[in-house]
Amino acid sequence: MSGPASAMVESRAVVVNASRFRAAHEADWERLEQLVTRMEKRSISALSDDDILALPLLYRTTLSSLAVARDTSLDRSLIVYLEQLSTRAYFQIYGVQTSVGRQLGHFFARGWPEAVRGLWRETLVCVFLTLASAVVAYLLVRSDPSWFFGIIPQELAGGRDPSASAEALRNTLYERHDDMLTTFATYLFTHNSQVAIFAFALGFAFAVPTVLLILYNGLMLGAFFAVFAAHGLAFNLGGWLAIHGTTELFAINIAGAAGIRIGMAIAFPGRDTRTESAVRAGRSAAVAMGGTVAMLALAGLLEGIGRQTVVDDFSRYAIGAAMLAGWLTYFYMPRKGRRPV
């Protein structure tokens, strides 16, 4: 080594790229940071018109600062700062949802019916499974009433089993509970919604648990019909069920269809990778399932309040049929200006 390794000198000022760079652009970065912080704390409506116009320019300036800084500067704090700021700005500009009102509007006008329509095959399969298992349970219980207890748990039957008299069964269909009607409706709604969410989520296991859930639902239906039919009350039970059942069973079947869609997408991804296929199925199925919560709220009201106040069989059938027609039109009616699927 020759000469001294270090020396004090008076004149030469060291300048590095980071310093030049900061001097040139720091004001822009700071302004962007302020805007982004304001958007994160409140929303885009917290910005003035000038700020909104400046936002994309500031964002691009910062992004290009980041690109340049990575190649020319060794100041890590600067690069980390620019990375974080660009990321925050990116998600505020590209990743943020529109207002809740517009989201809901779009959901009910387009998103939900389209998602449900997209599930029509799975929905048909679910309806078929429900009907088939109902028929099987009906035949089983009619041939040997002891099957009933194998299908329906004791506490759910609530005395509506094959040993009950015709009078007792008739009473369960028409008795009026005047107290706690809305509580009952709310309970039904939250309980059924939870079931719908499970039917969706369990689809992940290659749809097997979802199919079991749908089958069991059908079995219970068939078993009850068999008990009531033995006393000639099948038509009356039909009315009791139809008033809310068209909505409720439809909702459960859609949720089941959503679960089946996910399970099938994971089991048989086709040309896509398994993850891509799961994501595509998961997002649209979730929209369909999310909407069933609204359906079940309506079904809860019909069951908890409507059924207790409307005791005439034909009115019950009429309401049920009207609801079903309404849902079918809403979901499957061709819409103008629909995007090609």
């Binding site: 270090s6 004090m8 310093s19 980390v80």
Partner: peptide, 22 residues
């Protein structure tokens, strides 16, 4: 998604004479 502040410039703004190194 954290927002750290920009650290101070370590090089710029030093008034005293600097050492030089071989």
């Amino acid at each position: 998604s954290s927002g750290g502040a920009l650290g101070a410039d370590l090089v710029h703004g030093v008034e005293r004479p600097r050492r030089t190194f071989s």
